[in-house]
Design a protein around this nucleic acid. Structure first.
Length: 814
RNA sequence: GCCGGAGUGGCGGAAUGGUAGACGCGCGCGACUCAAAAUCGCGUAUCACAAGGUGUGUGGGUUCAAGUCCCACCUCCGGCACCA
């Protein structure tokens, strides 16, 4: 066991580093900048998770190395402190969320200090600070000004337990992401952010980033761009007394000739129009189906899976613009109102879903495409042919490939090529207390006005009750001296408070938790600025973030949302680039023993405090870096920690063998090369492995050169900041190891004088032999021929071919 | 169904096309000890007494040489999913 008192070590050095400010960033300094970011935590009552430690240690290692390579590194930390758990806790206990949050933050901070992360704590802030959310509200106002924030009556996802509206992204398999309650549909007037306006850029601009490929792919899938055609269909009553039209969206305009019916989403406005014009002869049936669809939750609607339902609109027909054929029109809930135009042309011969529906309702199936006999074969086999082909219809399009036909046919029928996205606008409001107030007011007629910038921040008032009201309004709604505010509307249409003015009513919805985290990284650059969200020159200098590491679970929500906000801020001239993060990486999850998810119910959650108490923070850090490939999920293994603990003990022991006058070993120079390269490529596990190999070599020696050991400590320091600092001090240094230069290997000392060759016969390994390094082929073969292994396998046979790879192998083909 | 990622000892995992299993855990034997723990040393893919053979999910292929490259599959994990 070690002689070191880890607790005392960590307390001493944490304080010293803080006092000396060795990790603080001078953002104005004229040095090469590097902005490294990790996701700031939500300060839950559970405290720091070993998953946080994995992510934070990894970037801490990078930060420590880069500082010592001469970069001005910005590596900050803060807290994403608004959110439901604190509020739900308040409902249960009556304790104000700010109190719970404060307590949790203090605990998180203590834990992060214990871990020795080299954050610049001077830049810390919380999203719940009014000086911070002032700027969250300010961004909202700017979005409102540009028409990107708007209110809309719409069916929203409603969690009956949390009494709260959820974003689509927060609904997982039809249930509330947080509490698992089945989500209901409810019509509400909602604040929305028009993220869909940025869909194309959010996809395209990924090209300019260095995100991990899987992160790009996941974002692209989520955004779901597809290029297709919008084509108008006429619709009329059978007696031609009524005429109208609708637009369909299709990616397969090449199959337009195979359209044998059309389908509208039940929610399509045209359906209402047809009903109110009394042109549908089975209106009661249609109305019933429509009402049913509206009540269904998304999960009911899709859970029916393969069974498709729909109702024919009797009394009307649509006209296929390609051939002027009359086709029937249906409403069916397999057509989604929010995607495309909420209306489709159905081509059962070439689309799975249309085919299935056509079979069910006995509709005509007409082929529009051929590929040799494939289409025929498929249709006989009871399945549609959904691939590409050539146009089958006689006439000007005959024989055109799908790709060409899509354009030509779209053109011919007066349609247009468009790009659609699966993305929906972001529901940007919660009827809850613990969030940023939305900075708008309403007059007595209900007309809405944004507040003037000078009014910001709109501070969240203290309340006594946190329970949302039964009609789903925020508890803020009953704080009358906050909700009702006297003021006037200025010449620009903005509200300012004025005791002599009229009474207005504040918006009582608050922003979702994603708001504060959508721009937090920018604030670190200039965290105390009260004139702007950040000094323009400093933002220009420090943005974008060079490297952002975080969890895969944030790929489609936080990452997308923050990219959207950032692009908006770019458009209004606040930030210098259109992408916020240059590089994005993601650590794998840490699972419990046996590879199952850590959870309280399974009782397999590892508390970092416990590990630190038992082994010290250095061991925890090194273990988490050694545990497995950084980007892969790994199972926690209590037993394996002792290996790391032994390693640290060996390092300490080696310190006792340090002498001045003994030659440098090649291994240390090789290790410097390996560790440097591995840190840069996030191969932390192999970096630790090579450090272990190096110590094992040291151990075998009676004496270790002081220079060698110093270099060793220097490259171990990013991983194990406490012990290395202590041993460094013991070597007689008075300045921190963490401010020392990153060591460079001595190439001339790095090279071993001998190499081991593999000896192969016809590709099979038959032995090894040792030669001086860098011998030429002739000399090596010469030497080989004198050896027993050569005589044994080759004897007097004449080699057909000799493969020689210098310093590696000789392969003799007979 | 679509899109990603991964399959290597008892386990976590290493391997610019060039000695597969580094490093660590575990296990076995030994040293130290009255004893145990800790520590140190040696060993540890597999079949075989041995010579030698076989081995990186499966089947093919390219190559002097394949865990690595190519083709066809299988399994597991993650994401998306009636997206027209």
């Amino acid at each position: 066991m070690s002689n070191l008192d880890y607790k005392a070590l960590s307390d001493y050095w944490s304080k010293k580093w803080k006092d000396d400010g060795i990790y603080s960033t001078d953002v104005t300094r004229d040095k090469k900048k590097l902005f490294l970011l990790v996701e700031f935590p939500y300060p839950s009552g559970e405290g720091l998770h070993v998953g946080h430690v994995r992510s934070y240690t990894a970037m801490d290692v990078i930060a420590r190395k880069k500082r010592r390579e001469g970069y001005e590194v910005l590596f900050p930390m803060g807290y994403d402190a608004f959110g439901l758990p604190a509020e739900n806790y308040a409902i249960k206990t009556g304790i104000h969320p700010s109190i719970t949050t404060r307590k949790n933050i203090d605990n998180f901070e203590r834990q992060m200090m214990d871990c020795g992360f080299s954050f610049d704590w001077e830049r810390k802030f919380e999203t719940t600070d009014p000086e911070y959310y002032k700027w969250t509200q300010w961004i909202f106002l700017k979005m409102y000004e540009k028409g990107l924030a708007y209110k809309k009556e719409m069916p929203v996802n409603w969690c009956p337990k949390d009494k709260c509206v959820l974003a689509n992204e927060e609904v997982v398999d039809g249930a509330c992401e947080r509490c698992g309650t089945t989500v209901e549909k409810k019509n509400k007037e909602q604040w929305m952010l028009a993220i869909t306006k940025y869909a194309e850029r959010l996809d395209k601009d990924l090209d300019d980033t260095a995100y991990l490929e899987k992160i790009k792919t996941q974002q692209r899938n989520w955004i779901g761009l597809s290029e297709g055609s919008e084509i108008d269909f006429k619709i009329k009553s059978e007696d031609a007394s009524f005429e109208s039209s609708f637009t369909i969206f299709t990616t397969r305009a090449d199959t337009l000739f195979g359209c044998t019916y059309c389908v509208l989403a039940p929610e399509q406005p045209l359906v209402m129009e047809l009903l109110s014009n009394n042109v549908i002869t089975n209106s009661s049936e249609v109305t019933e189906y429509k009402d049913n669809a509206r009540l269904k939750t998304d999960i009911d609607r899709s859970a029916e899976g393969k069974e498709k339902t729909g109702v024919k609109l009797e009394g009307v027909v649509a006209i296929n613009p390609a051939n002027n054929e009359e086709v029937p029109v249906f409403i069916a809930d397999y057509v989604l109102p929010q995607y495309g135009t909420g209306a489709i042309m159905a081509v059962p011969a070439h689309d799975e879903r249309d085919y299935e529906f056509a079979k069910q309702y006995n509709l005509t199936i007409k082929k529009a495409i051929f590929v040799d006999d494939q289409v025929f074969i498929d249709l006989v086999n009871n399945k549609p042919y959904c691939g590409e082909g050539k146009v089958f219809e006689e006439g000007v399009f005959y024989g055109l490939t799908s790709e060409v036909a899509r354009k030509k046919i779209t053109e011919a029928v007066g349609g247009k090529i468009v790009i659609k996205s699966k993305l929906r606008d972001w529901v940007f409001a919660r009827q809850r207390y613990w969030g940023e107030p939305i900075p708008v007011v309403y007059d007595k007629d209900g007309t809405m006005y944004p507040v003037a910038e000078s009014e910001l921040p709109i501070v969240l008032p203290m309340v006594d009750k946190y329970e949302p009201t039964d009609n789903g309004e925020s508890p803020l709604a009953i704080i009358s001296d906050w909700v009702n505010v006297k003021g006037r509307i200025d010449s620009t249409g903005h509200f300012t408070t004025d005791d002599n003015g009229e009474v207005f009513r504040r918006e009582t919805d608050t922003m979702p938790q994603w708001a504060g985290s959508s721009w937090y990284f920018m604030r670190y650059i200039d965290p105390r600025n009260n004139q702007a969200l950040g000094d323009k020159d400093l933002l220009a200098k420090w943005l974008p973030v060079d490297w952002y590491n975080g969890g895969m679970e944030h790929t489609t929500l936080h990452l997308l949302y923050s990219r959207f906000w950032y692009k908006f801020l770019f458009d209004i001239g606040i930030v210098p680039t259109s992408e916020p993060y240059y590089k994005r990486t993601s650590q794998g999850m840490i699972l419990g023993a046996g590879g199952v998810k850590m959870s309280k119910s399974l009782g397999n959650v590892v508390n970092p405090d416990k590990i630190i108490t038992e082994y010290g923070a250095d061991v925890l850090r090194v273990y988490e870096m050694f545990i497995g490939p950084f980007d892969q999920s790994v199972a926690w293994d209590d037993k394996a920690i002792v290996g790391v603990s032994r390693f640290m003990d060996k390092v300490e022991k080696c310190a006792g063998k340090v002498v001045v006058n003994t030659p440098s070993l090649p291994i240390i120079h090789q290790t410097i090369v390996k560790v440097s390269r591995d840190i840069d490529s996030t191969a932390f596990n192999t970096a630790i492995s090579s450090l272990m190999i190096c110590v094992n070599e040291f151990e075998k020696k009676d004496k270790i050169a002081k220079g060698d050991f110093e270099m060793f400590l220097k490259i171990l320091a990013p991983f194990a900041p406490f012990i290395t600092e202590e041993l460094w001090k013991n070597l007689g240094y008075t300045t921190s190891i963490h401010t020392s230069g990153w060591p460079l290997p001595d190439e001339s000392l790095m090279i071993e004088s001998e190499v081991t060759y593999a000896f192969q016969v016809a590709g099979k390994l038959r032995g090894t032999f040792i030669t001086p390094k860098d011998l030429e082929e002739e000399a090596v073969i010469e030497l080989l021929k004198t050896l027993d292994i050569y005589k044994k396998y080759i004897e007097n046979a004449e080699p057909k071919k000799i493969i020689f790879v210098k310093n590696r192998l000789v392969n003799i083909v007979l």
